[in-house]
Structure formats: C-alpha cells, structure tokens
Simulated assay, not measured.
Amino acid sequence: MTTLLLRAAVFLGSAALGLVAADLIVPGFRIVWSHWWGFVLCIVIFAVLQSVLAPVITRVARRHAPPLLGGVGLLSTFAALLIVVLLPIGGLRIADALAWALAPVVVWVVTAMATVLLPKLFIRRGADVRGDARRA
C-alpha cells in the first residue's frame, strides 16, 4: 500500500513539476494561478490521462505505425495536454502554435526526469529517517 501511494505521489509530483516548468519556460503556456483548484484538478486529470493514454498509443503505434513507438511519450503528453486544456476547469491555457509545439516537449522531459529523480529522493530521505530512528 505504501508503494502504491509513493508511486501516485511521484506521478502527481512529476506532472505538477512538468506543467510548472512549461509555464516558466514556454511563452503562450499559462497556468491560471487565480484558479488554483483548477490547476490541481488539471494535474490530477493530466497524470491519469497520461497513464491511460501511453499504453493505448503504444498499442496503436505498434500495430499501425511502428516508427512512432519512440515518440509515444510525446504523443501521450500532447494528447493529455489537449484534453486538459479543452476541459472547462480553467487551470491551463495554451495560446499559440509555438506553445503547442514546445509545451509537450518541456512537460515530457521534466516529467521523465522527475519520475526518475523523485523516487531516489524519497527513498534516500526515508532511509535517513529510519537510520535516525534506529540511532535514537
């Protein structure tokens, strides 16, 4: 159960980091901070969509377009962003074509890096806490 919660936290945290990075880096990509609840909902929906869309896109690409298999992460990120932006929850805005081209790349790269690095941070911090408890 702890592992499942840790994975969910890492996945949601990496999605949040990816979206915030795109907000900071990509012109035309904007998080509507005045609707913080909408942004939190965007994070949850984006993370769930990515986890559902990646296997579906992989299956379709394997069957119909094998050269696209390398871009499954980018395609699922783009599709998840598209769906989240179209939902009337008001947390994200993507204004122009350049933002639509750059945002999936930034979100995908940051999310991938965070998915690798966050568990190491949690595991190391957990080991440090357990070590301190044993010494006490």
Rank of each mutant, 00 (worst) to 15 (best):
M1L: 04
L6I: 12
R7Y: 14
L12Y: 10
S14V: 01
L19Y: 01
V20S: 02
A22D: 03
D23W: 09
D23I: 02
I25M: 07
I25H: 01
V26L: 08
P27Y: 07
F29H: 02
F29G: 04
R30D: 14
I31E: 07
V32E: 14
S34I: 13
W36Y: 14
W36A: 14
G38A: 11
V40L: 15
V44K: 03
I45S: 09
F46I: 06
A47I: 09
V48S: 01
S51G: 14
L53A: 13
L53R: 03
P55S: 01
V56S: 03
T58D: 08
A61I: 00
A61L: 01
R63G: 10
H64T: 11
A65N: 13
P66Q: 07
P67C: 00
L68R: 06
V72G: 08
F78Q: 01
A79K: 02
A79V: 07
A80K: 06
A80M: 01
L81G: 09
I83E: 11
I83W: 09
V84A: 07
L86A: 15
L87R: 06
G91T: 02
A95R: 07
D96R: 06
A97V: 11
L98W: 14
A99F: 07
W100V: 05
A101P: 04
A103G: 02
A103N: 05
P104D: 04
V106Q: 10
V107M: 06
V109Y: 05
V110R: 02
V110A: 04
T111C: 03
A112W: 13
A112L: 15
A112R: 10
A114K: 02
A114R: 04
T115S: 15
V116C: 00
L118R: 03
F122K: 03
F122T: 03
D128T: 07
V129D: 09
V129H: 08
A133M: 12
R135D: 12
A136Q: 11
